[in-house]
Design a protein around this nucleic acid. Structure first.
Length: 781
DNA sequence: ATCTTACCGATTTTT
DNA sequence: TCGGTAAGAT
């Protein structure tokens, strides 16, 4: 055998050993997922099974070794002994030191027929997941990683549509309507069809439209079908709604997906362009795809069939947003010869937590068989607590958080998961009183705040003058004395003349100058035109500031000088830091890009775990996160499972939600239910949740509050060990210093014994109620 | 045009 | 209970 051939044999052998070594930190299943490069793959990844690890490494594997791991690509040049030694040395070194970073020389040697990063499309559902994956890819691939499209469905679609949407008769400056804007259009459509808005609620119509869109059905497709009166009218609203959106050159969230599908279906050339580009497609959280997203992925993948989807049918909790669990259950039917890989080894939770989760989810039918296991220790028993009411529930949670603190947990290791946002109230009150730092996610979102929507209305209208929803929003904000009657008049004119609302304001105010309102409206258009001119030379931040001052928006809020107006000003300041960030970090800033970016983020995207606070959030929002200690509140029939799900036969989804909640925990779980709780202002008595019964005895123990006598001494101990200022007598008028709020004055006291409450007035922050026992207060002379 | 009061209705919401 | 919306008063 020739010497060259021996070298070659040695080279291939070494290359494969290096390959194994590079991924030696993965388990067998993860490695299989990583090295299966070509063809369709369904990866069922249980909670905490390291699926991001698998996805990221799979991309690395594709990049270095190409799609077929045991292929022997032709060598383009001869080999010499030195090169072989280089590889041997790397291996030796790696085995000894445990490093897995390739030197550039070794990389150059073994990287043959690897896949170009720009040919990879990796789809996630949240920006957070995308960012996480992106940064891990950059750590592995360096610069090259930026060429991979790692983004959400919606972002990818916006990118494609900005380039191609003219083929569908929209302009590429289209506006994205968020949920709120979308409801405005629906309301208008309902009104113009003279429908009874008691029967046709915007919410119901919205979900009807969304359902049709996700099924890729246009109004015309549905109209022929047999429909009852309500549905028939609903479709008419849908038709009108869609026309209005197009007139406004606006897309709603669903449109981003469905119009991309439409584009690909109707324009073969465009589809082929993207098929050619994206040779390898990966989809995260596949169980959450709806039909439109499923079509989109299939269209892109059907040419090369290199599609890798990861998901967990047991974590499908978004069916109310049209996520279709069948997409995952029937993947193997859709793609013949699909490889099935199950990741069942969990790296997150204790065995006991996993057993509890497995036992609960076992009660669901029609799922892919999957049992999580772990090498982690057995762990502590789950704790169950029967609270007297929601206040007692909050108190229990607060106390346990303090106790965990003594055991070495920080606040950020604790999360309270709830079913509905309304449950956060009692918790917030208690945490506030006892000085537990917390963050609540959910409820009013930053970009949905009035002042933010107002300023965005101005910006949107500048980019897209056809956007009549934004125009309507801001034409009288701040007050210009332009009311509904004036707008109606102009709107009539617009319809008559076939103009956009903005053009109509401009033209009509030239003809009719009869009222003060119309003069103001003319001034508004002049202002917008002036700003549009000036916008050309200044940054988005400068432009935003200009609008806020020149309209008198800031001035109005400053004059109000209420707590509310102050917080609005704060929010606007915050918005300006967002624009500033964008101005600085973007190479080619553009307003429409900025606006779509903002539309597509959620508050959770800004979640930073560096902050040492307890997290309160819904179980839905907690998906994908993990905490050492999880408290699940409101485990009562009617709350969780939610009463609505009991009626609508959606118990299995609730159970999946419970599974998601349980599998967030690394070490401890506290399960709390209350005998009674205030619900909608009335007291209600609920049975303990069925999910509690589904966790077998032996996995949990009940926490029982000891008798009053012991309770008192117990609490006194807890207090003294904390060293709070309990023993100090507070007197009205005393000056105190609070850790977070600074100096304040005691303006009231109430309660007795352990539960003495103080009302403290903090300048500029109003009056706060705190529990003397817990609050980080100190008397000031 | 805008402020005030009475009513209704009330999950979850990656984008 | 609270918050958002729709009709009535100024």
């Amino acid at each position: 055998m020739a010497y060259d051939q021996q070298l070659q044999e040695r080279f291939y052998e070494l290359r494969n050993t290096i390959r194994q070594q590079l991924f030696s930190h993965l388990n067998v299943e993860q490695f299989k997922a990583v090295e299966t490069g070509a063809g369709p793959v369904l990866c069922l990844a249980g909670a905490g099974s390291g699926k991001t690890m698998a996805m990221v490494n799979r991309i690395l594997h594709l990049y270095i070794f190409g799609p077929i791991y045991n292929a022997r690509p032709e060598l383009s040049h001869g080999l010499n002994q030195e090169e072989i030694e280089l590889m041997e040395n790397w291996l030796k070194n790696s085995e000894e030191m445990g490093t897995r970073t390739l030197s550039p020389q070794v990389m150059r040697l073994i990287n043959m027929e690897g896949i170009q990063p720009r040919s990879i499309l990796a789809i996630t559902f949240t920006n957070k997941a995308a960012e996480e994956m992106q940064s891990r890819l950059e750590a592995l691939l360096g610069e090259k990683a930026r060429e991979i499209w790692v983004m959400t469905f919606h972002k990818a679609c916006v990118r494609i549509l900005r380039r191609e949407i003219t083929a569908l008769g929209y302009s590429s400056d289209f506006t994205i309507y968020d949920d709120y804007d979308h409801l405005q259009v629906i309301k208008k459509a309902i009104a113009s069809l003279n429908l009874d808005d008691k029967k046709f609620t915007p919410r119901a119509i919205s979900s009807l439209i969304s359902r049709y869109k996700c099924e890729l059905k246009e109004p015309a497709d549905v109209l022929k079908k047999a429909l009852d009166f309500w549905q028939e009218k609903g479709v008419q609203v849908y038709e009108l709604y869609q026309k209005e959106l197009k007139k406004n050159n606006a897309l709603d969230f669903d449109d981003l997906i469905t119009l991309t599908v439409k584009l690909f279906s109707e324009h073969q050339d465009v589809l082929e362009k993207y098929q050619k580009r994206f040779l390898y497609i990966m989809v995260d959280e596949y169980q959450d795809t709806n039909h439109a997203q499923y079509r989109l992925v299939n269209l892109l993948a059907e040419k090369h069939n290199n599609i890798f989807v990861v998901g967990d049918d047991d974590q499908s909790i978004y069916s109310f947003r049209q996520a279709d669990i069948r997409n995952i259950l029937e993947f193997e039917r859709d793609f013949s010869r699909a490889t099935l890989i199950k990741l069942e080894c969990n790296y997150r939770s204790t065995q006991r937590i996993l057993t509890a989760a497995n036992e609960v989810i076992k009660n669901n039918t029609g799922r892919k068989q999957k049992v999580l296991w772990t090498q982690n220790p057995e762990g502590e028993l789950l704790i169950q607590y029967r609270a007297a009411d929601e206040k007692d529930e909050a108190r229990f949670i607060g106390e346990k958080i303090f106790e965990l603190g003594d055991k070495g947990s920080s606040y950020q290791d604790c999360a309270v998961l709830i079913r509905t946002n309304a449950q956060s109230r009692a918790l917030e009150e208690r945490f506030m009183k006892t000085g537990i730092p917390y963050r609540i996610f959910g409820g009013q979102k930053f970009y949905e705040r009035m002042e933010i929507k107002d300023i965005m209305g101005y910006l949107k209208l500048l980019v897209n003058p056809s956007d009549s929803v934004s125009l309507r929003r801001i034409i009288n904000v701040p007050r210009r004395g332009i009311g509904e009657a004036t707008i109606q008049k102009i709107e009539g004119f617009a319809v008559e003349q076939g103009l956009s609302l903005y053009e109509a304001v401009d033209k009509y105010t030239e003809i009719d100058k009869s009222s003060k309102a119309l003069k103001e409206a003319a001034g508004f258009v002049r202002f917008m035109e002036k700003i549009k001119e000036e916008a050309k030379d200044i940054s988005i931040t400068a432009l935003t500031e200009k609008i806020l001052t020149e309209t008198g928006y800031i001035e109005g809020l400053t004059k109000d000088n209420t707590i509310e107006s102050q917080s609005r000003l704060e929010n606007l300041k915050e918005f300006l830091t967002v624009t500033n960030d964008y101005d600085e970090k973007t190479s080619e800033p553009s307003m429409s890009d900025f606006l779509s970016q903002i539309c597509l983020v959620s508050d959770l995207d800004s979640y930073e775990d560096e902050q040492n606070t307890v997290t309160i959030m819904t179980m839905h929002m907690a998906k994908g996160l993990e905490f050492s200690n999880i408290f699940i509140g409101g485990l009562e029939e009617g709350i969780f499972p939610h009463s609505r799900s009991l009626m609508d036969d959606e118990l299995e989804e609730e159970r999946r939600l419970c599974y998601v909640a349980l599998t967030r925990a690394k070490e401890r779980i506290y399960l709390i239910y209350a005998k009674q709780r205030n619900l909608f202002g009335r007291r209600s008595y609920n049975l303990p949740s069925r999910f509690l019964e589904e966790i077998p005895l032996g996995l949990w123990e009940e926490y029982k509050r000891v008798s009053t006598f012991f309770e008192t001494s117990y609490e006194a101990n807890a207090t003294s060990s904390k060293g709070t200022a309990l023993m100090l007598d507070y007197v009205l008028g005393d000056k105190v210093e609070h850790k977070k709020w600074g100096q304040g004055v005691i303006v009231g006291t109430s309660g007795q014994g352990e539960e003495i409450e103080l009302q403290v007035a903090f300048p500029g922050m109003g009056i706060k109620t705190v529990l003397a026992r817990y609050a980080p207060l100190q008397k000031v002379q």
